[in-house]
Simulated assay, not measured.
Amino acid sequence: MSYLKNAWYLAAWDYEVRDKPLGRVIAERPIVIFRQSNGELCAIGDRCPHRFAPLHMGKVVDDVIECPYHGLRFGADGQCVHNPHGNGKIARAARVPEYSVRERHRGVWVWLGDKDQADTSLIPDYSIMDDTQGTGVVQDYMRAEANYQLLTDNILDLTHADYVHAGSLGNGSMTKTLPKVWEEGEAVFAHWWIVGEKAIPALARQLPDPEAPADQWLEVKWNAPGNMSLRVGATPAGRPREEGIDSTSFHIMTPETATTTHYFFANARQFRVDDPAIDQVLKEIIANQFLGEDKPILEAQQKMMGTTDLFSLKPVSLPQDVAAVRVRRKLEAMCAEENQ
């Protein structure tokens, strides 16, 4: 499978990389991430070139990482800096790949391609995560046995909520509403606006009158390769947005392999931001919805498809597929251009 190389991939939430190295496979590349004594992040290949042991099982010694098998040590540039055996001579081939890594918006981002092109400004702007007050940010990580583009499709086509999440996120209103889809630069947008209907259950319970008509918005923005923000809110029908509830969630799909995905989720809400009790409730709701509802159908979908490309199977098209198809075609073109 072809992956975009010159792009930022979310590799971990910041809290996942503390005192111990973290190993994570991204786009089929084993990578180890660790912190030096000053807190600076490093990301290098995770496979020791000697006997291919995973470096993340080792430890950080004097700001370099020591292989747990035979004690070779590797610096932030991937070069072996210490050989405890024999006369200590270091073989020229004793090195692993080096990756650019940045810490932004409570996440650890890794660039797989040319380091000279690793422009930090290309990391999606999720600064709302930094700006949200109190305990208003919830983060989680989950793994799925499905291709990352299937998980991306899942967010770009929210009509699935009426069926997969009936009773929690869906009440039938999404299916009869077509999204407005457009591009700005390399980003793709898909917006649903639902006017004068009962709010979906997850929003209705936060409104003054859950049974009254409401105006709702569900707004997705996609950035390559699988980074999406989803702004969701509702207000009593005819009232300004500011009088309702509003929150932004982040659904970031980082490919592990052709059939597995790292799913990073976060939510930054603009209501009850100083209520830690709702943090736990939201986290449980989100985990239950994905683990108990999305994950089974997506993994079953992957098994039905195998490793066959989606378009080669000639899928039947429905009106709500516009955003997902546009993103797939755009990503395909970006990969093709990179490989010229």
Rank of each mutant, 00 (worst) to 15 (best):
M1T: 12
M1Y: 10
L4N: 03
K5G: 07
Y9T: 06
Y15Q: 09
E16I: 03
K20T: 14
K20E: 12
P21T: 02
L22G: 02
V25P: 09
V25S: 09
R29A: 14
I31R: 03
F34P: 08
S37D: 14
G39Q: 08
E40K: 11
D46Y: 04
C48D: 13
P49W: 03
P54H: 09
M57K: 13
G58H: 11
D63N: 14
V64H: 13
P68A: 11
Y69G: 00
R73F: 10
A76H: 15
D77A: 12
C80T: 06
G88Y: 07
A91K: 12
R95W: 10
R102K: 13
R102I: 10
E103D: 11
R106H: 15
G107W: 09
G107K: 02
W109Y: 08
V110S: 05
D114G: 05
D116P: 00
T120W: 13
T120M: 14
S121P: 01
S121D: 13
L122K: 14
L122A: 14
I123H: 03
D125A: 08
M129S: 10
D130T: 06
D130C: 07
T132F: 01
T132D: 06
Q139H: 13
Y141T: 12
Y141M: 08
N147R: 02
L156M: 15
L158A: 11
D162P: 11
D162Q: 08
Y163I: 14
V164K: 03
H165Y: 09
H165W: 12
A166Q: 13
G167D: 02
N171M: 06
K176D: 15
K180N: 14
K180V: 14
G185M: 00
G185P: 01
E186R: 05
E186S: 06
A187H: 01
V188W: 00
F189P: 00
H191I: 14
W192T: 10
W193F: 15
V195G: 07
E197A: 09
A199C: 03
I200P: 00
L203W: 12
L203V: 05
P208W: 02
P213E: 01
P213V: 02
A214R: 00
Q216D: 07
V220M: 15
V220L: 12
W222E: 01
G226F: 08
N227Y: 10
S229E: 15
G233F: 08
P236V: 02
P236M: 04
G238T: 07
P240F: 03
P240A: 06
R241M: 10
R241D: 05
G244H: 02
G244S: 07
G244N: 03
T248C: 07
S249V: 03
S249L: 11
S249R: 01
F250M: 06
E256F: 07
T261F: 08
F265I: 11
N267K: 15
R269I: 04
V273S: 11
D275Y: 06
D275N: 07
D279N: 15
V281P: 04
I285G: 10
I286P: 09
D294M: 09
P296N: 01
E299H: 04
A300H: 12
M305R: 10
S312F: 10
K314Y: 13
V316R: 15
L318V: 15
P319E: 00
A323M: 08
A323V: 05
A324L: 06
R326N: 03
V327N: 07
V327W: 06
R329K: 12
E332M: 13
M334V: 04
E337R: 02
E337A: 13
E337W: 04
N339T: 15
